[in-house]
């Protein structure tokens, strides 16, 4: 994608503020690179499960999307720094093991639901908030690009759920509370800026992110799970 020119407002920012925002974008580049590994596992799982060809195809593209996101986030860091940045840090990759899943097939289904229907849905809600709060054209363009892909990545999970038979729906229903608790815990570890002045650069304050996560859980994920025929009892305690 072609990003807008760096705004004069950015060039005129104090160095410390530019560094802070650049660090956030470079950190996000690292997490985007890690999520490519998550989607490699998701794609492998769609293939192994004999899932719909459309889901297999889009999940393969998702791996490429995440690498592209890394590049975009690095570019954003460089725009704020006004200079090249170091290599993207490599983060440890630690997907859920689900040792209590009774079969390999169940584990793969849980991976897809956990990564796509939960994690990427939270990511979409987070980015929608970032986009709403962003006022700088450069930031809005980058966030819009990220969000458009995250939506498809979340849809992978929701579409997959709609392909499940009754037996698989019962299995996934039994795991909904653990999946929700574990994923929300990861999101609540997120350390975000508290500086309201960064919001116009697409970095909303932590309290707004928490509100967005709760809203997404209560008014998006739970109704979505009900829509696809899952038993959501117990989830009301999670959000």
């Amino acid at each position: 994608m072609t990003l807008p020119e760096t705004d004069a407002e950015i060039r005129e920012m104090p160095c410390a503020a530019r560094e802070e925002i650049a660090r956030i974008w470079l950190s996000q580049a690292a997490t985007e690179a890690r999520v490519a590994k998550s989607f490699a596992l998701v794609h492998e799982s769609f293939v192994a499960l004999g899932a719909d060809a459309g889901l297999v195809s889009v999940s393969a593209r998702a791996v490429e999307d995440e690498h592209r996101h890394e590049s975009l986030c690095r570019t954003m860091a460089e725009r704020y720094m006004g200079a090249p940045v170091v290599e993207t840090p490599v983060l440890p990759f630690e997907p859920p093991a689900h040792p209590e899943a009774k079969t390999d097939r169940a584990r793969r289904a849980l991976w897809i639901v956990g990564q796509c229907a939960f994690n990427e849905t939270f990511a979409s809600a987070y980015l929608a908030l970032c986009y709403d709060r962003a006022e700088i054209p450069l930031a809005r363009a980058a966030i819009r690009e990220l969000l458009s892909d995250e939506i498809d990545h979340a849809r992978l999970g929701w579409a997959f759920l709609q392909t499940l038979d009754a037996s698989d729906r019962a299995l996934v229903s039994d795991w909904l509370v653990p999946l929700a608790v574990c994923n929300l815990r990861e999101w609540r570890k997120v350390r975000l800026a508290e500086d309201e002045r960064l919001a116009r650069h697409g970095i909303p304050p932590a309290r707004e992110v928490e509100t967005a996560l709760v809203h997404a859980m209560r008014d998006l994920i739970v109704p979505g799970l009900e829509h696809v025929g899952l038993d959501v009892r117990g989830l009301e305690r999670v959000a």
Partner: peptide, 10 residues
């Protein structure tokens, strides 16, 4: 368990 790593927050 740990959940899926988030795409943000590091």
């Amino acid at each position: 368990e740990g959940g899926w790593p988030t795409t943000k927050g590091q």
